[in-house]
Amino acid sequence: MISIDDLDRVLGWMLKDQLQALEVSEGNARIRLKMADRPGMPAPRVEAKVLARGLGRFLVAHPRSGEPALKVGDQVVAGGIVGFIQNDAVLLPIVSAHAGQVSEVHVAAGSLLGFGAPVLTLMVEP
């Protein structure tokens, strides 16, 4: 089933590739998107990835905070901590540069993150 988030993502691609219209058919379902002619329409949200800038195990929150893991649909603020990278005695916060809504969580708690690995995808107001 297509969600509003998916539409945002498709609109983001259209914007990036300067497509005026896009049509997708699958079985009996058909969806057609067309860029508005009128100025002043709200711009679609775009995707942004939060990446690991270090190496280690992914923690969803500080071990002493007990906060729950972020899930799809949660809101993140710019500068907000979205998790930690633990390596030996070092805890490195993973900071989101953007405010937005979580559209995808790429890693499970405890998994090994390499440098530059995607942690979350956010839908961000441009």
Partner: peptide, 24 residues
């Protein structure tokens, strides 16, 4: 495991990152 950016000093010469990668 990716240990760092492209520059050698931040990756293949980064002793800490390599040892941490081994331990992990």
């Amino acid at each position: 495991v990716c240990i760092g950016p492209s520059a050698s000093k931040d990756s293949y010469l980064n002793a800490d990152a390599i040892i941490l990668a081994a331990l992990q």
